[in-house]
């Protein structure tokens, strides 16, 4: 299955959430890979703590592959090449976890041609042979990466594809997330151009809320009553806004609570980070785990 991670704005936690979903899926025993299609900023190696690819690879990555300079993009086995001991300790029964990084110094593409599209289609098809989950992390906003992904999936109707749109729980983000999907030159618009059926494509898009503050949780115990009622009021407004924008509960796949660890360092959250050093919250891992299951759970993706 192909899963595309996209967000209208930067800073939504798209990369770190999708990386953690991949990690959780691998722990659940599935073979997974992560493709860095954030062409303007190929830094996903940093999240997986693979120092040889923290700013992209020098051994031939996604940029050079798509441009036809190399026949295969290089792959990194995260279980063996991560610098973090807790990640390197691959548990029994875990699946493969492979990273396909961008090139060091690689930039956003100005356009793509027919040959590049063919190469992209071939890569997706080949990865589908090997991996249960292929997570493709796309550049923020309307990008050629998103165009390329839409064009390529239109040519691969037999490979299931799903889209995750990440947004924060703010007015601006909710409106932006809706615009990215339904607005002019949004996913549906561009998808139609490449031959996607808008109805079918809509069914394959779900939203993920990130850095969410749970009002009922203990974090808010110290708030003054005035602050609490203001927050409640805003939250109600946001929920209304979200529903009006088609970003409401029915189209939401999951939400990730605000976790201090992720605010300061984008990283994979291992069970050790929760149970051992206790730097991360159990709720965060629970949210990732839940998303990792829902991504492939067909009942979460039934037509609306």
């Amino acid at each position: 299955m192909l899963v595309f991670a996209i967000s209208d704005k930067g800073g939504t936690g798209r990369s770190v959430t999708s990386s953690n979903i991949v990690y959780r899926r691998a722990l659940q025993g599935q073979d997974v890979c992560y493709l860095d299609f954030d062409f303007g900023s190929p830094t996903v190696g940093a999240i997986f703590r693979v120092s040889t690819a923290s700013r992209g690879t020098t051994r031939g990555g996604m940029h050079r592959y798509l441009q036809g300079e190399i026949t295969e993009p290089s792959r990194i086995d995260v279980w063996t090449e991560s610098d973090r001991d807790t990640i390197r300790a691959k548990p029994a029964g875990a699946g493969q976890m492979v990273l396909l990084p961008g090139d060091q110094g690689g930039g956003e593409f100005a356009t793509f041609d027919a040959e590049m599209l063919k190469r992209c289609v071939r890569l997706f098809a080949k990865l589908h042979e090997q991996f249960d989950l292929i997570m493709v992390d796309l550049s923020a906003g309307r990008s050629f990466a998103a165009h390329l992904a839409l064009a390529a999936t239109a040519q691969l109707p037999k490979i299931p594809a799903r889209w995750l749109v990440f947004h924060r729980w703010t007015r601006q983000h909710i409106i932006a997330a809706n615009g990215l999907v339904k607005g002019e030159h949004g996913l549906l618009d561009v998808g139609r151009e490449y031959g996607h059926d808008p109805g079918a494509l809509t069914d394959r898009i779900r939203f993920v809320r990130t850095a969410v503050l749970e009002l009922g949780s203990g974090d808010f115990a110290h708030l003054r009553p005035a602050q609490r009622s203001w927050l409640n009021e805003i939250d109600r407004e946001l929920r209304e806004l979200a529903t009006r924008n088609g970003v409401g509960l029915t189209t939401m796949l999951g939400k990730v609570p605000l976790d201090p660890v992720l605010q300061w360092r984008e990283q994979l959250i291992s069970d050790e980070d929760v149970a051992g050093t206790e730097i991360a919250n159990a709720e965060t891992v629970f949210a990732f785990d839940d998303l990792a299951k829902k991504i492939v759970d067909d009942t979460a993706w039934e037509g609306l």
Partner: peptide, 21 residues
């Protein structure tokens, strides 16, 4: 590898292999 890809692209195949490999 390329010729394998060409075969795998055949419209006759349903791309639903019994396991990943």
């Amino acid at each position: 590898d390329r010729f394998m890809d060409v075969v795998q692209e055949s419209a006759l195949l349903d791309l639903r292999a019994p396991f990943r490999s």
